[in-house]
């Protein structure tokens, strides 16, 4: 069953330099229990998309389209209704846990907040729950560490605490924004292992936002590739690695260290000044006249494999 259905989502924010078109007509479904990876370069709008789902974007942003969660449109909900979704139904794990945690509140207090709020647990019971949760994300001595502050935790431990905070209400969907970025490689591997384990146990769906294809391959069933503001390819992890269709996806794969580290020529377009037609045409060696003028639609090229490119039209 479809848990979250994003339909023709657009998110633009208004700056002095003009409208930043971060998300331009994204369609995407997440099934119950599915783990979907959203891949793209820095500045392609993937974080904006993640924040839009929980309506956490700043007030100067215009969001259009529909985000149906269990059939209900998140974008038309009242503030009160969306707050009942946040943390309880859909939770978020942010990158950079040091800045994402409040420096003046203890880790225990912060991890406990979702259960105190949504499950109306008393302080003492909530803290008990936090200790269990910290144990399940393998933080040693949880009964002591709940009383500590974020700066007293190491980077890896902080990210574990963030994961505990996200999962404590057992949400149906977890949005993880670059959860391993900025951690040491060995710690990264531990966090990936941990996420695999907790997600398998809980059956929670996940939208994993990352620029790191190998992390997505480890944790996800399907991958959506984003290129300034649009999904340009959607496939299962297996298909994407074995048979990438979009020239950008191929380039992306070729730029991986174990595939030769070949960079894609050119740079990503600015979100303020996007090219007409296919957004990738200025960097694409196969571009034709049509690519410069028309925007390609998502074309079905296999079972659950879609690509936005005229080569397959």
């Amino acid at each position: 069953m479809t848990l979250l259905s994003i339909q023709n989502l657009k998110a633009h924010f208004h700056t002095e330099d003009g409208a930043v078109r971060a998300v331009n007509g994204v369609d995407m479904d997440i099934e119950e229990g599915e783990k979907l990876g959203l891949i793209g370069e820095t500045g392609c709008g993937k974080t904006v998309l993640g924040l839009a789902i929980l309506r956490l974007l700043s007030e100067n942003t215009t969001v259009e389209g529909r985000i149906l969660y269990k059939g209900q449109d998140i974008l038309t909900m009242s503030d009160h209704e969306i707050r009942k979704i946040r943390g309880k139904e859909i939770a978020m794990i942010f990158q950079n846990p040091l800045s994402s945690m409040n420096p003046v509140l203890t880790v225990g207090t912060q991890v406990a907040e979702p259960v105190e709020l949504h499950q109306h647990l008393k302080k003492k019971d909530a803290m008990q729950r936090v200790i269990e949760m910290l144990k399940s994300v393998k933080i040693p001595l949880p009964q002591e560490r709940v009383k500590e502050y974020p700066h007293e935790f190491s980077g890896g431990m902080r990210q574990r605490a963030m994961i505990a905070m996200g999962l404590i209400c057992m949400p149906s969907l977890i949005i993880a924004d670059e959860p391993t970025t900025g951690l040491d490689v060995t710690i990264q591997a531990q966090i990936i292992e941990l996420m695999k384990e907790v997600l398998r146990d809980s059956g929670t769906s996940m939208l994993l936002i990352t620029h790191d294809l190998t992390v997505a391959a480890e944790l996800c069933d399907h991958i959506a590739v984003m290129y300034p503001g649009e999904i340009i390819e959607y496939a299962s992890v297996r298909d994407l690695f074995k048979d990438p269709k979009h020239p950008y996806t191929r380039g992306f794969l070729d730029s991986l260290p174990d595939r030769g580290l070949k960079p894609i020529a050119g740079i990503s377009p600015s979100l303020i000044d996007l090219p007409a037609g296919c957004k990738f045409h200025p960097r694409c060696s196969l571009a034709t006249e049509r690519c410069r003028k028309e925007r390609p639609e998502l074309i079905k090229v296999g079972i659950k494999h879609y690509v936005r490119c005229f080569l397959y039209d």
Binding site: R86, M92, N96, S100, P103, P114, M165
Partner: peptide, 26 residues
């Protein structure tokens, strides 16, 4: 503008709690 304020909102806390519990002391 800090990230932890966004985190606090993402948990479903009301604006009052976000302001007073997470913002004010800082």
């Amino acid at each position: 503008r800090q990230d932890y304020i966004r985190t606090a909102r993402s948990k479903g806390l009301s604006e009052q709690v976000v302001m007073w519990k997470h913002g004010f002391k800082n």
